[in-house]
Amino acid sequence: MKKTALAVLFGLALSLYAGCAGAIEGETVFFKSKQAQSAVLTIHAATDLAAMTPLVLDFQKTAPGVSVEFSDYVTNDLFREAELACSKGSGPGDILLSSSVDQLVKLANDGCALRHISTDRTSAPVWANWREEVYGFTFEPAVFVYDSTKVPLQDVPHTHDELADLLRREPEVYRGRIGTYDIAASGVGYLLAFNDARQAPTIYGRLLESFSRAQAVKRCCNAEVLGELAAGNIRIAYNILGSYAYAAYLKNPKLRIVVPRDYALILSRGVMIPTTTANRELAARFLDYLLSERGQRVAREQAFFFSEKAPLPDGVDGPEALMESGVGRPIRIGPALLAAQDQILRERFITDWASLIAKPSN
């Protein structure tokens, strides 16, 4: 689909979001049912509301009597609330969505997830389904985003090594102009950094050293890093999820997206039904919708833009076949992610990261 059509769809999603809520209170939005209300589905999500709005509205077309209460969180806050609800045996959420799939796996491993054999579970790749308790429903590469009016073509990095070299070669130009996550505050930032370190430890070490030299700007989440880019405060953003990057590009065509050609971490945003749900059947119905051909089409065309089974979206610089070429490295949803949530390992990793990235440049 062409960029202009996608931009119209994205703008429509935002306008529908602005008008769909019967009530808005803080980070909670209420999508009123299309017909007389028969049920309310409560979604607690660390997922961009603008991206989820087309999916929620389309789901309501299949369930016109269902209202949806959508509460948006940062990943760590959602995880803490879900842990507390599980320990108490009661909680407000019927379904949980999060980009920090390691946190969902930890919840499932602790007995906080219901098993649901989805009618459309074959839509999820084998690496994005753990025990029918945590499913991945998106395909999102971690990308570089840059301001094309501030970064000349000869400086555009296409690999992790090239990014590290650029920051070493042009320290004055990019000092304070490279942005990434504060992994202590961002669950998905931590997950991506943890997998970077496993995927390419030498390159990752060079990147951290380069970030330190360049006095990298650290923010809590995708939206804040992209906000710094849009405001002109930084020139390059690192490890941004492709869905957020492409949505930003649709609103701001001076932004450009690069899928790194040496390796690209692939995240599949997770969904699970907590044991504390009050609407198990309705939650299962929404999960099935997310994995269905219809839901996947809406996600690809209006919400998350990337797909394992489709070429890269228009305007994205990267390899033609991410998975077939071996460039795409999926973050598998499964027990290996429990290592990322081991408290001692996590604290040590974040401490080491903070120490390396904060070293004064020579």
Rank of each mutant, 00 (worst) to 15 (best):
L96M: 04
K34V: 03
I43H: 01
L6K: 01
Q60C: 06
P54I: 01
F10N: 10
L96V: 04
V40N: 08
E81F: 11
Q37I: 13
E81W: 05
T62K: 10
S99E: 14
K34H: 06
Y17V: 08
V29I: 12
A82W: 01
P92T: 12
A36Y: 10
S87N: 10
F31T: 00
Q60A: 04
V40R: 10
D72L: 10
L9G: 07
L16S: 13
V29Q: 06
S38H: 08
T75Y: 07
S99P: 04
A36C: 06
K32M: 11
G65C: 08
T42C: 07
K32T: 15
L96G: 00
D48F: 04
V74M: 09
S33F: 05
Y17H: 13
G91W: 00
G19T: 12
D72K: 10
S33K: 02
E25L: 12
A23V: 14
A5M: 09
D48P: 01
A85S: 13
P92D: 11
G89M: 07
L9P: 02
S71T: 15
V40T: 15
D58Y: 07
L6M: 12
T53M: 06
Q35M: 07
T75D: 14
V8I: 13
S71V: 13
T53H: 04
K88L: 15
A7P: 02
V56Q: 00
E69P: 01
D77L: 13
F31C: 04
V56N: 00
K32Q: 14
L96Q: 00
L78S: 03
T42R: 12
A23Q: 12
F30Y: 14
F30W: 11
L78Q: 02
V56R: 00
M52W: 00
D58N: 12
F70I: 03
L9W: 10
G11N: 13
Q35R: 11
D58M: 08
T47H: 11
I24E: 14
F31L: 09
I43M: 05
A51S: 09
L84G: 11
K61L: 14
S15W: 10
A7L: 09
V40P: 04
L12C: 07
K88I: 15
T53C: 12
A13K: 00
T75A: 13
L14P: 00
V56H: 01
K88T: 14
S98C: 08
V68N: 00
K88Q: 15
